[in-house]
Each structure stands twice: as structure tokens, then as C-alpha cells.
Design a protein around this nucleic acid. Structure first.
Lengths: 339, 339
DNA sequence: ATGAAAGCGCTAACAT
DNA sequence: ATGTTAGCGCTTTCAT
């Protein structure tokens, strides 16, 4: 079933059918109607591949994330899916699991599909070939950014978020504050770790290596690190977590060891999935504007795409960092007496 | 940059280049190597659209879900993404938000893209045109199923899961057990509600309309229904929830009203996101084999695709229901004295 | 082992 | 307002 079949069924040329289907202005309303009806009756389904053969791009937008279960990325996907549907794009979802090779394969496939644009959470080790391929399309980096990728980014100002948390604890009287955070190999992990050490310095405290763990992103990492921290000789009186997953792991450990929070240790998490407030006691945390940042990234991408299409000059896009805000619930208190 | 450029750069015909790139057996290893190198150097990127013009399908698999934040669907997406990448397919993610019109538009787009197959969580009101379009491709239904869609399904045996929960509570001595569940307009909602009433009957209890609320799927619905239940004249001594989101809403309400669980009411949730065990007290719930069911659905789809490709007869695929299992933690106890 | 040629379904420039 | 024609980049016979 192609436009040619429709054309011969109607005794017109296939270009008339094409124009009618595309709502071209020089086609009579009557003709458009007849074409649409026959297309319907014949069960015609346009061939997207044939169309992209004649056009520059396919109506596809790619999204590369390390993980779909992460709330931040899940929100991004949700918002992007909505915006894509509205703008007539299909969403191709690629999960990298932070593997640069997988990332490359996905970007190659996206280029072969002639995807119109791309939102990417780059892996720590983006390959040069990947960056090269990305240079050929509108791209926005999300949550993390990589110097090899010449594309604007939208992220959370994690340094500010963590610094706020640390200052709050220091002002409460804590001197031995621990950090369990993302690896500094990640741009966002590095920023958050800097926020931690910076705020400590600001309050005249120095980072104790035994309490500083910017070493991983998994629940398991936070679980074991937290357990070790609690058992350590000079245990911290407060712990700050550097991601939502890490917070979950820490909470598991605290629960398992039946630690008194905030009596024994104060805790500040990162991110705010709905269940944080359901904890007993309610978890204090660094709140993030997830959908705002997702929207910002998508708008940025759409602006690039539009500029490319209209050939307009597009003012150089500047990267964006959204402000986190401290949500104080019940897991912070002055340090235990004697500490 | 097309195979023709590569061809003339090498002084060979473009069909040789095509064959070399596709690792055709009649091409010398040397030629393959030279072609690949020049393709590389010239920055050649194959054109997927042109390829699908000559082939039956594009290497795309579609996934239609109502919502990406739901843990069950998130796991499905994660597993599907991994399997697709492994099998050389791209994953097109479509979010329906349970809107049949949106669902139709997505399926149309998928057909136009010549997607190879589709995993779908059907909306309650699947349009006949949607079903018609789906009939033209390998499909498997996930989590829910709709009679208009002639495709096998993989789901959780929610009736069993809920029935187990209810029996456990009845055996503990509860007589006034409430249910807050998904709408019966959904196939899975209907099954779970049936599981509830069936188990009640089995234990010689009858359903009290005031305690039976299979009316919605949102957190907000569970929050308000739970609040009303607790305030009611003949309040329940136990509440069973019919989905993970509903459980979360119920928990919010219980927390807000500072209800003693399980002293005052026993609670059994549905699903088991990691944080359920972190609640105080630890939440008893109906556990599900999420990734097993996701894997089963994908394998089923891949088998259909393969059968279609080899033209083999494919034994009629039978739908699958996975067994849930009760996870008893600390939110169930015998009813309060005097009840 | 390689080349020549046809054609997949569509859009668009150029007629009329 | 509609028709004619020429490709878009690729795979795939059919030749050689």
C-alpha cells in the first residue's frame, strides 16, 4: 500500500496524493477529503523511511541515560516523552549503564536513523568518536557534562546543594561531618565533592580523609561505606549523601544497625523521592527541581533544532545550573553530648 | 557521504561497497578492509531510512506504557532496553498516560516507522483502529490485557497476590478488611478486586461496600480514601492496597494521621520498591517478580519476531501469569482488642 | 569476486 | 489545481 495505489484508485497522480496527505495549500479541499478517505479505506500507512530519504532528518529525538530507575532520569524521560509527543517526535531511549562503548553504539545508531537531536547524560569516559558523531547534531547535556562534548548542559548545582547541607550541620555544632558521594570521575560527582570540602573550609573545618567518600554511585557502596563509618574509631556525628541512590543505601545501613537518628548521627540526603518524607524520622534532604531542569534541557534542545531548521543564527546557548534547596525535616539535630 | 562516494574513492561499484559493509561472503577480506577504512576516514554514516526502504522492517521495537515512574514499568523499560541493545534494536518509548488517543497516535507512528515489534500496556479504552494497526505486527501485552488486542500477554497474577494477603489477615482474626485498589476498568485492577472479594468469601466474610474501593490508581486517591476509611464509623482493622502507588498514598495518609500500625490497623502493600523495607515498621507487602515478567514478555516478543522472519509456523503463544509471594514484615498483627 | 541496473516509497522542482 | 519527472541511499537480482 503506497501513495501510488491510492493515486491509481483515484485516477490522479501520486504527487497529488502526497500533497493532499501533507495538507498542501494548492490541493482542493474536496481532493484532500477523497484522498484521505481512500487512504483510510485501503489501510495506507505512510513509510517514514522513504520520507526521511528525501528530508534531512527523521522525526526522532534520542535520549541517553545511564539508568532509567534513577528518579532524576525517570523524570527527564517522562517530561521529554510528553514534549516529544506534542512536537511530533518519537523518543528513542538508550540506556548506557555508564559504558562508553555502549554509548558509542547508541549514538551511531541514532546518527544512522538521522535522529533530529539528542539529550545525553554523558558517561565519564566519552569516546572521541562519540563526541565527533554528536558534533553533527543538536545536543544538550543533562545532569552531567563532559568537556569533549561541545554542547550546552543543564544540571543541578550540586556544589551549592551539598554546601548548604554541610553549613547547616556545621552551624548546628557538628565538627565531624562525613560525605558519601558520587565518584569524582563524574562532573556532577566532582562538583558535589567540591561543595562539601568548600563548605567545610568555610566553617574552618578540614576534611578528614576517613570521613570523605566520593567513591561510587550504588546503593551497595553507600550501605557498606555507612556501616564502616559508624563502626570507625572516630565516627562522624553527621553524614551527608551525594545522590538519592546513595541516600537509600545509607538508610538501609542505618536501619540495619538500628542507629538512633538524629540522636546518634544526623543525616542529610540528596534528592527527594516521595518516600523520603515517609521515613521515621522524616528525612532532611537536598531538594531538586527535577521537572524544571528537564523542561529547561528540552527547551534548549528544541531551540537548537528550530534554529538549525530556519537557518537562523542561534545565540550561543549558555549552560544552566538549577539551585537546590534544603528541606529540613527530622534527621538533623545538634551533635550528641561529648562530641 | 554515501556508499557511492566510498565506491568512487575506491574505484569500485557501490554495490561492492554495500556488500563489503554488510560482510557479504563473496567479498574478499582485503576489499572489506579497504572499504571499512575509507568509510571510516570519510566519516560515512549509513542511512537507516534508505535501508528500511528495501527491507520489510526497521530495527525498532516500540514500548507503550502509561507511565515511566511506576516501578513495574521502569523495570520493564530497563530490561527491554538491555535486550534491544543486545539484539541490535532501538527502543522507541511511548508514554500513553492511559489516553487511548495518544496510544493510537503512538501506534500509528510506530507503524509508519515500520517498527519490528511492540510491547504494550494497553489503555483501558483501546480504539479499534489501534487494535487494527497492532494486528499488523508482533505484539505482546504486558501487565494488563485488552480483549480487542489479539496478542499474548504477560502479567502478574494479582488476584492470587491479593487473595494471599486477605487470607493472611483473615487468619490473623481480621473481619473488617478494606481494599484500596486499581479501577476495575483495567484488566489487572479487575483481577485484583476479584482476588479480594474471592478470598473474603472463602473465609466466610462478605464485602462491606464501605470498605471496598477499587476506584483509582493515583497516590492522591489512596491518600484520601485511606483518610476517609480511618475516620469512618466502622473503620477497618486492616487495609490491603492494590498497587505500589496506592500503597505509597496510603502510607502518606497513615503517617499524616499518626496512626499506630499494626496496633490500630494492619497494612499490606502491593509491589516492593526498595524503600518499603525501610519504613517503620517494615511494610508487609505482595512481592512481584518484576524482572522475570519483563524478561518473559520480551522473550515472547522476540520469538514472534523470529518466527515471522524465518516464516516458521510459531506455536500459538500462551499468555503467562507470574505468581506473587507474600512478604511479611511488621505491619500485620491480630486486630485490636474489642474488634 | 565484482559490476550494472532496477527499484523500494516518497517529496519537490518544474511543468502545465 | 494537478501531472511529470527526477532523484534521495540503499539492497538485490542478474550478469560477467
Amino acid at each position: 500500500m503506497t501513495i501510488k495505489h491510492i493515486a491509481s484508485a483515484l485516477g490522479v497522480s501520486h504527487s497529488t496524493v502526497s500533497r493532499a496527505l501533507n495538507d498542501h495549500s494548492h490541493i482542493s479541499a474536496d481532493m484532500k477529503e477523497r484522498v484521505r478517505r481512500t487512504a483510510m479505506e485501503l489501510g495506507y500507512v505512510a513509510h517514514a523511511g522513504a520520507r526521511t530519504l528525501r528530508q534531512a532528518h527523521a522525526r526522532l529525538i534520542g535520549m541517553l541515560v545511564p539508568d532509567v530507575m534513577n528518579q532524576l532520569f525517570a523524570v527527564m524521560i517522562k517530561v521529554l516523552a510528553a514534549r516529544c509527543a506534542r512536537a511530533g517526535y518519537q523518543l528513542v531511549l538508550c540506556v548506557t549503564e555508564d559504558d562508553p562503548e555502549a554509548e558509542l553504539r547508541h549514538v551511531e545508531a541514532l546518527r544512522e536513523s538521522r535522529a533530529t537531536g539528542l539529550i545525553v547524560v554523558p558517561t565519564p569516559g566519552v569516546l572521541s568518536k562519540t563526541a565527533l558523531l554528536m558534533a553533527a547534531m543538536p545536543v544538550v547535556q543533562f545532569s552531567r557534562s563532559h568537556p569533549a562534548i561541545a554542547a550546552p548542559s543543564v544540571a543541578i548545582d550540586g556544589a551549592r546543594g551539598i554546601a548548604n547541607a554541610v553549613r547547616h550541620l556545621a552551624d548546628l555544632g557538628h565538627r565531624r561531618i562525613a560525605y558519601v558521594g558520587l565518584s569524582t570521575a563524574l562532573s556532577n560527582g566532582a562538583a558535589r565533592a567540591d561543595g562539601f570540602t568548600g563548605a567545610l573550609a568555610q566553617r574552618g573545618l578540614k576534611v578528614e580523609p576517613a570521613l570523605f567518600h566520593p567513591g561510587g554511585g550504588t546503593i551497595e557502596y553507600a550501605r557498606s561505606t555507612t556501616a564502616a563509618l559508624l563502626r570507625g574509631a572516630r565516627a562522624p556525628t553527621a553524614i551527608v549523601y551525594g545522590s538519592a541512590d546513595l541516600t537509600e543505601g545509607g538508610l538501609e545501613s542505618l536501619r540495619r544497625e538500628d542507629v538512633d537518628v538524629p540522636g546518634h548521627v544526623s543525616i542529610i540526603g540528596f534528592g527527594d523521592p516521595g518516600w523520603f518524607k515517609l521515613m521515621t524520622p522524616g528525612l532532611s534532604t537536598v531538594g531538586l527541581s527535577l521537572s524544571e531542569s528537564a523542561e529547561a534541557a528540552i527547551s534548549m534542545l528544541l531551540r537548537q533544532i528550530e534554529a538549525r531548521e530556519t537557518g537562523s543564527p542561534l545565540e550561543p546557548q549558555t549552560s544552566l545550573e538549577l539551585e537546590p534547596f534544603l528541606i529540613l525535616r527530622e534527621t538533623t539535630a545538634p551533635p550528641r553530648a561529648g562530641d
